[in-house]
Amino acid sequence: MYVVACIKQVPDTTQVQIDPVTNTLVRDGIPFIVNPYDSHALEESLCMKDRYGFKAVALSMGPPNAEATLRKALSLGADRAILLSDRAFGGADTLSTSNVLAAAIRKLAEQDEVGLVFCGKQTIDGDTAQVGPGIAVRLGISQLTLVDRIEHLDFLARKIRVRRKLEGRYEIVEAKLPAMITVVRELNQPRYPTVPMRLKAVQSDVDVWDNGVLRLDTNSIGLKGSPTWVSRIFSPERSQGEIVGDGLKDPSGTARDLVERLLARDLLTV
């Protein structure tokens, strides 16, 4: 039985900037990290491996340098790491991204059953939270998003019971396996790599699958398979406001000035 964790390599968010001339994202020299939520997805797949002896597979679609992300997964204990990389996959929106990831999972399922697919709640770059649901639909499996606790896994009955964290409420949900689960940070505490595992990871292979392996219709992948595209990128506007009084020397006078301004704008109901 396979448990799959989908992990994406992302730039360290706070450092992304826009080139004022070309109006595109400056990506050079930006350090990459594993999408933080995906570390929790990976951890959960490793917990399943520890507890039930399943094989943990880490899956990532990205450019060749995303191999680093997968090597990290191996150093943490993943049994297999697969990089889905092909020029034809480039420029993907979430529809074509989920197409490629789902195809890879189907391919894995030819070898052994895939019982669970873990994804992060969302990424910190694209931020859409759409890839997980896309995978679930394409595989026709149960979908459980925003899971913060796995309450029970009954393998014989092929059922899983989880807690989902929504706005102002929790849901306890039972679903049939296989299932696609997106995870939030509260689910677990990611482990650190051990030295022997890190050494082993250096020697292990990261499999690379291109579209020669997946054989997807080229109209359904990459830029061509993406209904959405980014027409414009810009920095958020910031309105410059007013500095009121001298708060350091005269806190009480400043407070009075502020209250006056709020009264003038009819903002106080006191």
């Binding site: 859409t128 759409q130 896309g134 679930a136 998003t145």
Partner: peptide, 19 residues
């Protein structure tokens, strides 16, 4: 919302359209 994003993602995929 949690619910809206859960639903929109599957509907768009099923309909093969952009979201």
């Amino acid at each position: 919302t949690g619910l809206g994003r859960d639903l929109a993602g599957v509907v768009a995929t099923e309909l093969s359209t952009g979201l």
